[in-house]
Design a protein around this nucleic acid. Sequence first.
RNA 1: UGAGAAGACUGGGCAGUCGCGUGGACAUGCCGAAAGGCGGUUCACGAGGAAAGUCCGGGCUGCAUAGGGCAAGGAUAACGGGUAACGCCCGCCGAAGGCGACUUCAGGAAAAGUGCAACAGAGAUAUACCGCCCCGCCCACAAGGCGGAGCAAGGGUGGAAAGGCGAGGUAAGAGCUCACCCGCCGGCUGGGAACUGUCCGGCGCUGUAAACUCUAUCCGCAGCAACACCGUGGAGGGGACAUUGGCUUGCCCGGCCGUCCCCGGGAGGUGGCUUGAGCCUGUCGGCAACGGCAGGCCUAGAUAGAUGACUGCUGCAGACACGGAUUAAAUAGGCCGUUUAAGUCUGUACAGAACCCGGCUUACAUGGCUUCUCACAAC
Length: 118
Amino acid sequence: MKFTVSLNQNYEFRRVYARGRNVATPLVVLYCRKNGSKTNRFGITVGTKVGKAVYRNLIRRRLREIYRLNEERFPAGWDIVAVARTRAKDAPYADLEKQFLRAADKLGLFARKEGEQT
RNA sequence: UGAGAAGACUGGGCAGUCGCGUGGACAUGCCGAAAGGCGGUUCACGAGGAAAGUCCGGGCUGCAUAGGGCAAGGAUAACGGGUAACGCCCGCCGAAGGCGACUUCAGGAAAAGUGCAACAGAGAUAUACCGCCCCGCCCACAAGGCGGAGCAAGGGUGGAAAGGCGAGGUAAGAGCUCACCCGCCGGCUGGGAACUGUCCGGCGCUGUAAACUCUAUCCGCAGCAACACCGUGGAGGGGACAUUGGCUUGCCCGGCCGUCCCCGGGAGGUGGCUUGAGCCUGUCGGCAACGGCAGGCCUAGAUAGAUGACUGCUGCAGACACGGAUUAAAUAGGCCGUUUAAGUCUGUACAGAACCCGGCUUACAUGGCUUCUCACAAC
């Protein structure tokens, strides 16, 4: 795999939240921002509000799996952060995958429209 | 067969495709001057009974070794044992509950002191409302009334009224005295002890300590974001002081430091990190908790945090449908079965290691097991 999980919550995550674009779906919110390098970096946030540790781990694994299986479709050079919302706890895998991909598409990540960014 | 009691377990399985963490082995690809970094193939291992709550007890680590006294604070509370230790466990005593198996326990002291005890009641460690009795006066005595002295038996109130009951005693009464009973304390007996009793002596005391308190025992503080090392950044500022100042929970003694305190800035990595009061088997001791001995085993170490996604078959439970046997019949109920004439649907919990152990508490679908009790039937 060609991505690196972001490490520093202070400046990496907050930079993506503050300066990146986002698209919200009922289950997941996606943030993205160009990072200037040749590799992608992917981060997942599941807050305590979503559920207990078992459910938070399950959502994190599913989101990582969704990204892994669709990695080929993403262009290189982006920081991407997925934030799970409360309703993701009871959602099946198929719904999570559908909404994740729709959000990524809305962000323009799949359509080769690399010209515009904030 | 029915209704229960206790204990110890289980915590779905198999296969395939893609994927993750740690360790070993094997090859060597890329980057780099080097140190080194990033990879490849393969094998092994990879969450729980509670990993949870973070409530107790420890190990470990640091705090300028935290020593003595006084005060304050916290915890525990019958007794004996187990343990590294405990507020845990086992045994046992007592009390309460249950026909019983058994369960529960906020089980030291109220005779050191203080406080509180609503309402009712005259009175709540202290009383006199009704009442009982005696004397004096009014009245011819009595009844009745007034005044004085004595009493606490009876009535009434209350959860509780100063042990209970009988006899003696007395003007009337009272443990005032005596017998029996009850309770408390001490001695003696039995027991390792709590405790016990056809024993002896003394006493008769309201309850509440989950009110303060007293007694006994224990407790220095903080926690792996501890702490050590290597790095990065860097910038320092303000305050207190040398007859002192600061630290050691408050005070005193004692001890320690030349600096101490506050604010601000900063990037992370490695170690700690898993061999431990460890697990399994056998045997011996013990009622048991547990301990001794012998043999075997190595069993997660992540750090935005490794177990996931999808598929097939299947186990278990329930519902529906169908078939079969039983029956005179069956539409009920129970029994057997459903890849062979065909199954369908639903459910499968609680919950994710984060330094490590011993406990406690709480959550939990399903499944069966062992021992025991009571009732009914049979013998």
